[in-house]
Design a protein around this nucleic acid. Structure first.
Lengths: 344, 344
DNA sequence: AGTTGTTATTTTAGCGCTAACATTTCTGTT
DNA sequence: AACAGAAATGTTAGCGCTAAAATAACAACT
């Protein structure tokens, strides 16, 4: 049988296969398969003969064949806006640590914040028949939603909770509540002419602003002129620019909530250049509480979000589902913490 | 044939397959395969009938079957130290953009800076029979090197060039030269008691320091007491700490080269707290020139490295190799640029 | 020795797709 | 009308593995 692979019509590249190992070890290929994937079900004797043969031949199993025969891929597809964003790279690390420990591969795809890209990415990933899927956020194209519902695999929606009925599982925080908490904090601190800076306005960012603005409005402190947003990707440099825009439009602003820490760093740097004292003349707050926020001068008041944890928990839920467990609580709100520091 | 899939002994989950589409469209399954993967070779008529059938049935192709039959996986394995590091997330983005545009999947694995993890990751990835492999750096375990050499697929070693004979293809910069360039710049600027701060001392970081120190030594300005390194992961906070260590050991230090920008930010913040004026009392330089480096106060002198570009070029070389092109120049040095700014 | 139950191994039959070859259908040419 | 050559489609035979059923081997009881 093994010799057949050298015949003219064969397409094989002469790779070492299971049956090569089998004939060397003097057992059937099924036994070799078991010896490798379920060693307890094979006698010690056979197990070691197989091990020797594998080493002698340099056998490398073929995942494609395994997936096809076993009807599962041992892979998890992850659909996020962008790898190069510090927020998501932390989330991915959480997912990765759990999945790789369990022998699952990660297929990662970037939507670049486009709902359309997201749909086509999901469609593409389904061709891999992943065992599970992790997507970002609760909002998605109807077509994508339908695909996921019909796929018959566990799906986790990540980053936010509470804004819509999840497709299946859901892990995140309430961005609306987080925005609101920050607004309340600022009002409590006595700030009254409060601005908001936003960039890369994805759904989560929008909801943070909504939550923030609603509280301001309830307190009679909402002023449209102080809301400055752009759809450009957010960068430190952009933070400085947006501050300039805000101060031109409303020079008497006494506090500013930045939709993420990067913008806030830019604001702090720009204030240093303009000799605006923080927080005396202008209070500044950020979002996500990246590592540098505790170190910058002045240290940055921010909302700490459990990024790594979200990834970890999402992956764990998926794993439990794949193990056949029923998940009693399909929606997990991991909460946030407002870290009050010098800047506000 | 198609009806066979509903027989008792079948393991299929009742998925829609190529031959289901074929019988609906009234053609053979091979024709459907062609209509989907090589549309030019099929008449417009058949093509649209197939398209309709695919939509009507909700057909999702099976990559595992495709890989197995076609003897290629349309995937590229990428082995890097850590996704959650800004340096590598930029590199990955470059790889991702090229690969996904060409229909290739990325399998990403983190070594967490361990040579052992790297080896086992490579072994694991080879079971996917990826069409190509991208690994970080020129140093790796002999076993890993052997695996790669024997795998018969194109391999790109990424991030650094010039330190060893590459296995196959190689894209990066000379970290040694970059370190040396920074040392020369600092000496030219008149600094004489120059320190070095390093963390997460991977091979690249070590070589940057070697290049830097060699130049100092040649100029008679090397002082071991001013080299402060740790194997801890580098963070902004750690930068401040290491500066403290350096100044305790050598208080008269007049300039400091940080092995990456994160450490440099930490140094700048710590100097602000200690009221050390930059660059008058202490000059500071970083490495990688992250986006924030141009915005921080004082703006940070750093070595700009083409991170995204490295990823892009590596992936492109791989693609060209997979297209059967011969690559005339297997080693590509993308170079670096020293960005002189206020901090030094 | 005969029956039963348990464990270890082999046999059989695909998983869903595509390479390679074979055949048919459609041009255009003389 | 006859033919060659190109283009479109069909047929056959796996790719390398595992689920399920079948069998063999072994221990544990009557």
């Amino acid at each position: 049988m093994a010799s057949k692979s050298s015949q003219s019509r064969s397409r094989s590249k002469g790779r070492v296969t299971l049956s090569d190992v089998a004939s060397m070890a003097g057992v059937s290929s099924m036994t070799v398969s078991r010896a490798l994937n379920d060693p307890e079900r094979v006698s010690e004797q056979v197990r070691s003969r197989v091990r020797e043969a594998v080493e002698a031949l340099g056998y490398i199993p073929n995942r494609a064949a395994r997936s096809l025969a076993g009807q599962r891929s041992y892979s998890i597809a992850v659909v996020i806006p962008s790898v190069s964003n510090a927020v998501f790279s932390n989330v991915i690390k959480g997912i990765y640590d759990v999945c790789s420990a369990r022998g699952y591969e990660i297929l990662m795809g970037n939507t670049y914040y486009s709902v359309q890209q997201e749909s086509s990415l999901i469609a593409k990933f389904l061709t891999h028949h992943p065992d599970g899927l992790i997507v970002t956020g609760l909002n998605m194209a109807d077509s994508a939603r339908a695909l996921l519902q019909g796929a018959g695999i566990p799906v986790v929606q990540l980053m936010e909770v509470g804004e819509a009925e999840p497709i299946d599982l859901n892990v995140g925080i309430s961005h609306r509540d987080a925005g609101a908490a920050m607004a309340r904090y600022m009002l409590d601190r006595g700030y009254r002419r409060i601005g908001v800076l936003g960039a890369q306005m994805d759904y989560r960012a929008q909801r943070r602003i909504q939550g923030f603005v609603n509280v301001l409005a309830d307190a009679g402190r909402y002023d449209e002129a102080r809301i400055v947003t752009t759809s450009e990707p957010s960068t430190v440099h952009l933070g400085g620019q947006l501050l300039g825009d805000l101060l031109s439009a409303a020079p008497d602003t006494d506090a500013v909530f930045c939709i993420n820490d990067d913008l806030a760093y830019g604001v702090i740097y720009e204030c240093q250049r303009r000799h605006i004292r923080i927080p005396q003349q202008l209070a500044v707050a950020g979002f996500n509480d990246l590592e540098a926020s505790a170190c910058i001068n002045p240290s940055l008041t921010s909302v700490s979000t459990p990024l790594y944890e979200m990834g970890r928990v999402a992956a764990q839920m998926l794993m439990r589902r794949l193990d056949g467990e029923t998940i009693e609580q399909p929606v997990v709100d991991l909460g946030f913490e407002l870290r009050a520091r010098e800047s506000a």
